[in-house]
Amino acid sequence: MSDTLTIAGKEYNSRLIVGTGKYKDFDETKLAVEASGAEIVTVAVRRVNISNPGEPMLVDYLDPKKYTFLPNTAGCFTGDDAVRTLRLAREAGGWDLVKLEVLGDQKTLYPNMPETVEAAKTLIKEGFQVMVYCNDDPIQAKILEDIGCCAIMPLGAPIGSGLGIQNPVGIRIIVEQANVPVLVDAGVGTASEAAQAMELGCDAVLMNTAIAEAKDPIRMARAMNNAVKAGRDAYLSGRMPKKLYADPSSPLAGLI
């Protein structure tokens, strides 16, 4: 039975999206991405090093024909910078699917939501398909969906913190009300937390640091691959109700 993820009209088998930052080198990036099973990878847009143009490039290791490159606006603190970055990204890659994040504070990297909303409106008007990083507020999430974002991506915890999902109730409400995919983006630290995001009903999980900063990133990538699948299956299965008292698993009839 197929259970695919559809984002902006395109189907994916994997429900794990991985970042490509913070790895030791491009070889490790490539192996970790392969182990994760991800079909979408986030990438950043930065200036070419003019003094050393021959240095290795990400696209030499990850083939944009094989993976969907999702350009992000990480590091942008104004909507204007984010929009400018994504216009360049669209020209570099030739595709419209992007990840918008407008940050509001250096220390927490929490999103600046008013700037995010304005930037999303501009991008959508220009034909971009916007997957949007946001806080875990259901009202804000609804606003982003209503203006036409193709996926809502609330944070589980601050970017790179590995604290796990701090507000499962908020995430669950966002999932219940949304008519577009909801992804937990940021904050997942280990496999059980990725599974938890999926058990809450999220359509996918996006992570970078949890894999890249594990002692063995390639093994952690595999763990996350499995965790997302397990969490999805558990969600679709419908968990048993919680009970206050024990309920024996072996029949009582026929006891000696």
Binding site: T20, G21, M57, L58
Partner: peptide, 10 residues
Amino acid sequence: LEIVHFIGGG
């Protein structure tokens, strides 16, 4: 001129 490319990022 701004000349940019894709690099690793989250």
